[in-house]
Design a protein around this nucleic acid. Structure first.
Length: 332
DNA sequence: GTTGAGCGTT
């Protein structure tokens, strides 16, 4: 059975509102609903709640990332909900309802026999993010310490997982966005993907709640050169498991809501931005290792048309041509 | 005015 998209939240302070709760859980991903349970007799909250996300992976991520979170003086206790079969009006946006199997004979093959059986709850801890440090920095550092051979090994393993067990891979990457980020950065380093696709990744909507991990659109546009120049110490080729600790909970109080709660946003596909003309991949990669200002300048220089170059004065022209010669070689 | 484990009628 598929894991639940709902988490059971206990040890709630009695003065926490559903909005506040949804806000806290939005740290980890879009929240579909947050329902605090009340006692009908007394009208007082029972001190626990159910928070539903749009997918299981986010629910699991919430358990990992929001543990020990303090809200109004009490530490949240978060578990995966026992999905009550009675309240089955969810799972609808995940496709049509499963067809009723009228054939009572069990399937010939035991399902999931070959599943790699990734335990999403028991992943290695990964690298610690120190205070004042960004998770992206730790990932960059970790990747820089991985030898090309190790990186290739990991990528091959991931590829195997994705092709043989796509659903497990999806769950793993969705619940561990830092891993997805690291893999993407590794693909850039290994020149498997063209850095220009960074331009085509549409930003999250402005109203997007902060996640426990920066969205890909905020990925740094420059990466350290690869392979690393200094001899890298060997580390076990373990995926970067870096994760940021949940930030201190917002203590803002919210007005009581009367409207049907719907927080965050459904994980819809965002429209893609128009692509902009880009330099060849190998040039972008070369440029990526330069400081921001130099990169911007060089990008402009390399994109000049012959016509534009001809309009420059002699001194500028010579400088420009020299730069272009250096980067474009014969093509200049 | 009170409460503190819990899996769901606000």
């Amino acid at each position: 059975m598929a894991p639940s998209r709902t988490v059971f939240v206990a040890n709630l302070a009695f003065d926490v509102s559903e909005e506040q709760l949804a806000n806290v859980f939005s740290e980890v991903g879009p929240v579909q609903s947050a329902e605090i349970k009340f006692d009908n007799q007394t009208g007082r909250p029972k001190g626990y709640a159910f928070v539903t996300f749009y997918d299981e992976a986010t629910a699991i991520s919430a358990i990992r990332n929001l543990r020990d979170t303090n809200v109004n003086g009490r530490t949240l206790r978060i578990e995966l909900s026992n999905d009550d079969p009675a309240s089955s009006r969810r799972r609808r946006d995940h496709g049509p309802p499963a067809p009723v199997n009228r054939d009572l004979t069990p399937p010939v093959h035991a399902p999931y026999r070959d599943e790699p059986n990734i335990d999403l709850y028991n992943l290695p801890q990964g690298q610690e993010v120190l205070p004042g440090e960004k998770a992206t920095d730790v990932i960059s550092r970790t990747l820089a310490a991985v030898t090309p051979g190790q990186m290739q090994e990991v990528m091959a393993g991931v590829k195997t997982l994705i092709t043989s067990h796509p659903e497990q891979a999806r769950q793993l990457l969705a619940s561990q966005p830092q891993l997805a980020y690291a893999l993407f950065q590794a693909m850039l380093l290994m020149k498997i993907v063209d850095p220009s696709i960074l331009q085509r990744i549409s930003p999250l909507p402005p109203a997007a709640p902060p996640t426990n991990f920066p969205p890909v659109s905020q990925a740094p546009t420059s990466f350290p050169p690869y392979p690393p120049t200094q001899s890298a110490p060997t580390y076990p080729a373990v995926p970067a498991q870096t994760y940021a600790t949940a930030p201190a909970t917002a203590q803002t109080s919210y007005p009581a809501a009367t409207a049907q709660p719907s927080y965050g946003y459904p994980p819809v596909q965002q429209p893609t931005q128009p692509t902009q003309p880009a330099l060849p991949a190998h040039l972008q990669t070369a440029l990526a290792s330069l400081p921001e200002d130099q990169r911007a300048m060089l990008t402009q220089v390399l994109q000049l048309t012959p016509d534009q170059i001809n309009r420059l004065d002699a001194g500028q022209k010579a400088t420009i041509m020299q730069l272009r010669q250096q980067f474009l070689g014969a093509a200049a």
